[in-house]
Amino acid sequence: MVKVLMINYEYPPLGGGTGIAGYYLLREFKKLPVKVDLLTAKLAKNKNLHHQSYWDLLRFFWHSTIRTLKHRREYDLIHAFSGLPGSVTAWLSGKPYLVSFRGADEPGYEPRHVLLWKLIKPLMGYIYRRAGSRDANSQYLKKLVLKSWPDLKIKVISNGVDTNKFYPAKKPVKQPIILCTSRFGARKGVDYLIKAMALIPKAHLWLAGSGVLEPQLKQLVKQLHLSRRVKFLGLIPHNRLPALYRRARLFVLPSLSESQSNSLMEALASGLPVVATNIGGNPELVNNHNGILVPPGNSQALAGAINQALNINWPKISLNQKFSWQETVNEYLKFYQQYNHPKLGYKSGELGHSDANRWD
């Protein structure tokens, strides 16, 4: 049985989409003939769950590298689930490794990382070129990475959705309830959505999430006299989100940058029409049959699209079956099995196991 060490700073409740993806991948790997252990960050007291400082990442890099070097002989390969800092640790281990690009860890995705990438870009190019395989979760992200390193070969391996949990409501929702599940950070654009609500009569907005900008967003709601129509639900555990989607009539994603949004995919799987910004990987999921795309950072355009979407008699909405965690895991398994040691052979149907070890 091939033995894999996956390195991912995020794991629920820490982080966002990258952590959620890691959770579902581990769940699926348990059903397959592979042993995958996860090395992730420890949940320290008062730790910011939504924003990782350079100090957080450096500290995780230091401790995860020490732990990886100590246990490197126990694994056949390393899976760096994000370019930074996991791929550096994987390279230092001397083991075969693959890199999964996730978005915020690549040049051009987040303005706050511009200086960092000027310093480390040559080193990261060297490390990425030596990976046994590289993948991105959207065509958009693949193109973004290729802008920095045009010679890389990158596969697109999409995120998935658990359609056993995320499925449409039995009866259509008549109340004009708008749902947004998001972290409350600057690049998520929730402030533009709140401002748009001032231009949308009668509709109600449910905001599920938390983050560093939550106090400012609540103050904005008060300033615009929207307290009766905008409701902050707090951070909702992921296993309670499916029921929340089925209570809404429309999903809105106002982000200023996205690679491939788990929330957007979950909303579509739940049968919701969507209004999303025309950025990142969103156009790969949204079309005229399931939603409306608008320019980012434009409250008026957002309000117009929401009003329009609430008045459309949408056809039955679903998510393409190719977006499943089983398909995602099978793509990774193809690479993993190249490193299956003959002495560690497995029988068809034998179960592997997955462990999440928090380390900081």
Rank of each mutant, 00 (worst) to 15 (best):
E106V: 12
L92F: 06
K188N: 15
Y167I: 05
C180S: 11
L285Y: 10
D76F: 00
V36S: 02
P295I: 00
Y167C: 00
E284F: 08
N340A: 13
G17Q: 01
V190T: 12
R59F: 14
R27W: 01
A198F: 06
T277I: 08
V36M: 10
Y128H: 10
V173F: 07
L38Y: 03
P215T: 12
G352R: 07
I292Y: 07
Q139H: 04
V99R: 11
P12V: 02
G291L: 04
Y11E: 00
V161M: 15
K222R: 10
Q223S: 15
T163C: 09
S270G: 10
L92K: 00
A309S: 12
R229F: 08
Q219W: 04
S138K: 07
I178F: 09
R249H: 05
W62N: 08
G209Q: 03
P201S: 15
H50Y: 15
S182P: 14
G345Y: 09
Y192Q: 13
W62K: 15
L264S: 05
Y245T: 01
R129T: 10
N159R: 04
A169L: 04
Q52D: 04
Q300Y: 02
G352H: 01
R59E: 06
L116Y: 14
I292C: 03
A80G: 11
G19Y: 02
L92A: 07
H51Y: 11
I20E: 01
D37P: 04
N357V: 13
Q139Y: 06
H204D: 06
S318G: 11
Q300D: 01
P13H: 11
R246N: 12
L205W: 04
V230P: 02
Q223D: 03
N313P: 06
L351T: 08
T18H: 03
R183D: 15
W325F: 13
R130A: 08
Y192D: 15
V286D: 14
L84R: 01
L25F: 07
G297S: 04
K42A: 08
I200R: 05
L69R: 05
L272Q: 11
Y24D: 00
Q139G: 12
L5G: 00
Y339P: 10
L226Q: 15
A198M: 01
A276C: 14
Q321R: 07
K42E: 10
H79P: 02
L119Q: 05
V4D: 01
K30G: 00
S257K: 02
H51M: 06
P12K: 03
V88R: 03
T181W: 14
F29E: 11
L69Y: 12
K35M: 02
S318N: 09
E266R: 07
E350G: 01
L43A: 07
G17Y: 02
A303C: 12
R249Y: 04
P201C: 05
L38T: 02
W55N: 07
L199Q: 15
K45I: 10
N290L: 12
P111Q: 01
F335L: 14
K202R: 02
P215N: 08
W55M: 05
P273V: 12
T18Q: 10
S270W: 00
I7A: 01
L256K: 07
